[in-house]
Write a protein that binds this DNA or RNA. Structure first.
Lengths: 284, 284
DNA sequence: GTCAATATGGAATTTTCATTCTATTCGTTC
DNA sequence: GAACGAATAGAATGAAAATTCCATATTGAC
């Protein structure tokens, strides 16, 4: 066999390997590129899995893994795997060390660093908060209402718009009928006019409240469309129109409120609804 | 598969195993105690080694390792080894448990509760990850590029759209000129045609990649408009068009990736840009 | 000191896994 | 559009590893 090992250097550590993969990714054939992407996206899997399990997960054949390794000068898949294992050995992933990593990767040294750290910390605080402030039974009721709805109307403006736009994306993927309300001012009310009591709405609004959202929620409530809402205050005008409502106070940094907890909440709600829908559909 | 042990509980994570070992260490026979000590002193070896290599290193027989594992209720050595591997694999062990500990508000009792907990834990993990994976100097460069831009073009589709829609909202409040690209397909290119090298773009794209986003970023890059991007893989087609790019892998729950870390990143970037702009304006 | 129960060492066995081999597909070039 | 070469899938192979088994040693009780 003609060994190209004198010309091409075999990467000896993970960084070198990563660089080599990125450099040559463009010229790699389809399946090998697939492996290349998988290996950099899921390095832990490569480290621990067996050739067979990795192959399944990356949707290639085991033999492809071997060929991939040989392409980069390794003798076989096993010797390539050593690189991925060494990577985990080197950096101690203990929890205590992880916190130190924050200061080792010292953002605060640089001008914008403290801003970055501040937002990450605020997001953490928000998430800690959410676990205690959301009542699981209310959550269950909310899921129930929205899962039984024919179409889910998503109401959100301004700062809460990203939340509902995520939900819209996810609902689309999950095949849940929805209407995103809050884009163009004019057509909103026409949309809402079509809602019946077999539908339901999910409204998000944080202070300062967008008065339209509250008005739209009230409109729906009057027409017996059940409304679930997420706000940052029990005094929110949304609360009174809602069958179920959640109070979720996001932590802030420099006056800018985090959205991480709301986002996590929205994802959980979305997936829980989709799951419940599936169960309901199967029960029929 | 082993029968579900009714009398002795099999430790399911490293912490539980460690506790069990320490508790029963005194009553263990000589060789098993030897293994116990070795396993807690060299957990990485257990994770990566083979039964034979570990046996040699711990100066026992391979069969002793199997006996040791069975002593603690595992089926064999391999299943015990999984615990040691999981310890290295899980980026931040502790959050799932911490949430369970918070079970005064016991979500997991209810159906949708575990979904909720799962997403909160995933968000926490993502945030831990972001602190280590974002290079502060790259962040600084990104802020610099975008702060000096006349107009910031925000490019995002699908799952990343909520990110840029938040940035759009915040930029509006902060009086930073921006253009949100990604709403209606038709007018996007006309918008981008107006971009000059005095502008800049921020593109977000996660796999599966929206090819439009990549194409638009390339278009801008060709016209010397500096592009900063946020992706979840070095393989993202965005990376090659970007002056600065960030790789940010969000943790997932049940296959749904969190957005919390990206959101925190976006907020930090937005505010950092606005702040820098103000400083630049004052300096004039 | 003897017996029984438990623990241990080391070989035998079985299982699992990486690698190799070959037929087939895919993509190019002439 | 035919023919060649590269790339790939999937089964076959052989090596390595985990586990089991059994003979021997050690420990503790009476």
């Amino acid at each position: 066999m003609a060994m190209p090992e004198t010309t091409t250097e075999v990467p000896q550590d993970f960084e070198a390997l990563k660089a080599a993969i990125l450099e040559r990714k463009a010229q790699l054939p389809k399946r090998l590129r697939q492996v290349a992407a998988y290996s950099l996206d899921n390095p832990d899997e490569i480290a621990f899995g067996t050739a067979a399990s990795i192959a399944t997960s990356a949707e290639v054949q085991p033999s492809t893994l071997v060929r991939f390794a040989q392409h980069f000068g390794f003798e076989g898949f096993s010797s390539l795997q050593q690189i991925f294992r060494a990577r985990l050995r080197e950096r101690t992933p203990g929890y205590e060390d992880r916190l130190k990593a924050l200061s080792a990767n010292d953002h605060s040294r640089l001008e914008s660093g403290s801003i970055f750290n501040g937002f990450v910390a605020a997001a953490h605080r928000s998430l800690d908060n959410i676990a205690t402030s959301v009542d699981p039974e209310a959550f269950e009721r909310a899921v129930d209402i929205l899962a039984k709805a024919d179409t889910v109307y998503l109401i959100a403006k301004r700062r809460s718009y990203p939340i509902s736009s995520y939900m819209a994306y996810a609902f689309g993927k999950l095949k849940v009928k929805y209407q995103l309300v809050g884009t163009a001012a004019g057509i909103d009310d026409d949309m809402l006019a079509m809602a019946t009591k077999n539908d339901a709405a999910f409204a998000v609004s944080f202070s300062p409240y967008a008065s339209e959202s509250a008005a739209q929620a009230r409109l729906l409530a009057e027409r017996k469309v059940p409304v679930v809402s997420l706000t940052d205050s029990a005094f929110s005008p949304l609360a009174e129109s809602s069958k179920v409502w959640f109070e979720l106070v996001e932590a802030d940094h420099a006056g800018f409120r985090s959205l991480s907890a709301s986002m996590a909440f929205a994802m959980a709600l979305t997936v829980a609804i989709a799951e419940k829908r599936q169960r309901l559909a199967e029960a029929e």
